[in-house]
Amino acid sequence: MNIDWLNFTPWSSLAGGALIGLAASLFVVANGRIAGISGLIGSLLQRSSEGAGEKALFLLGLLVAPLLWGLFAALPPIEFKSGGVGLIVAGVLVGIGTRYGSGCTSGHGVCGISRLSPRSMVATACFMFSGFLSVFVLRHLLGAWI
């Protein structure tokens, strides 16, 4: 295994992770809700009225975060590797997969593991495994990003 030391950002990643953890903690301690992004979007899409205001405001905060950041500093790099077809295939898989799997990186990976939920640990192991596999197949077996 080759570690890419040049692009390794331990401190900003650890600090960013701590902020994510703080945000998830605030949402559960104050609002009694899990900060799971796919679940929040999915429930608004299903027009469930329960807590719709709070859910929408959480997502609004997430949406305007780069605008607030941009007032004080240049945005960090945001580089895409996929073209249009790749983005569409990926988006559909992420959308349907997170709904069937009842969660994503935030709901299962951060909140679920912090709750010591066995379901979330299994879900996280599954999406990490298929994420590694997907990159391996595309990058090293097929030799291309789609």
């Binding site: 949406l63 069937y100 799997g101 299962h108 299994v122 599954c126 999406f127 990490m128």
Partner: peptide, 29 residues
Amino acid sequence: RLIGGSLLFGIGWGIAGICPGPAVAILLT
């Protein structure tokens, strides 16, 4: 459903490198 859904999600995550939180956070950039 938990396992199959999460596996599908990971395949998509590995294609584009985007999961739902970042998808919202980069929308207005």
